[in-house]
Simulated assay, not measured.
Amino acid sequence: MACYIFMVFLLGFPAVYSGSHTLQYYVAVSSTAYPGLLQYSIIAYVDDVRYGRYNSDTRRCESLIQSPMVFSEHLDGQTNMAQQTEITQKVLMNLIIDLLNKTYDINYVIQTKAACVLHEDGTVDVYEEVALDGKELVVFDKERVEFVPATQKAVLLAQWLNKQAYAMEDKIFMENECTQHLTLYLPYIKSYLDKKVPCVKLSSSESESGTELHCRVYGFYPRDVEVKWIKNGRDEIHSEEAAQILPNPDGTYQIRVSVGVTPEEGATYSCHIDHSSLENPLIVPFEKETKNSHITYILIAVGVIVLFLAFGLGFFIQRKMKGLKGSRQSVSSEEQD
Rank of each mutant, 00 (worst) to 15 (best):
R50S: 03
G52E: 04
G52N: 00
Y54L: 04
Y54G: 06
Y54E: 02
D57P: 00
T58G: 00
R59I: 03
R59T: 06
R60D: 02
C61Y: 01
E62S: 06
S63W: 09
S63R: 05
L64V: 02
I65R: 00
Q66P: 01
S67A: 12
S67E: 08
P68G: 07
V70W: 04
E73C: 00
H74T: 06
D76A: 04
D76Q: 08
Q78A: 07
T79W: 03
N80L: 14
N80S: 13
N80P: 00
M81I: 04
M81N: 12
M81C: 02
A82H: 08
Q84W: 02
Q84N: 08
E86Q: 13
E86F: 06
E86A: 11
E86K: 05
I87R: 13
Q89H: 14
V91K: 08
V91A: 09
L92V: 02
L95M: 13
L100W: 07
L100C: 15
L100S: 09
N101W: 11
T103R: 15
T103Q: 12
D105N: 15
V109R: 07
Q111D: 04
Q111V: 01
T112K: 13
A114N: 12
A114Y: 01
A115L: 03
L118V: 05
L118H: 11
H119F: 09
D121R: 12
G122L: 02
E128Q: 12
V130G: 07
A131Y: 11
L132I: 14
D133Q: 13
G134W: 10
G134F: 10
E136Q: 12
E136H: 05
V138F: 07
V138Y: 09
V139W: 03
V139Y: 09
F140D: 08
D141N: 14
K142P: 04
K142C: 00
E143C: 05
V145N: 08
V145Y: 00
V145A: 02
E146D: 00
P149R: 08
A150I: 00
Q152L: 09
K153T: 13
A154L: 03
V155W: 01
L156H: 03
L156M: 03
L157I: 15
W160D: 05
L161H: 00
L161Q: 06
N162L: 08
A165D: 15
A165I: 04
A165V: 09
E169N: 13
E169I: 07
D170C: 11
D170K: 11
M174S: 12
M174N: 09
N176T: 13
N176F: 06
N176D: 09
C178K: 03
Q180E: 10
L182C: 14
T183W: 05
L184E: 14
Y185P: 01
L186V: 12
P187G: 02
I189S: 10
I189P: 08
K190R: 12
Y192G: 08
K195Y: 09
K196Y: 01
K196Q: 06
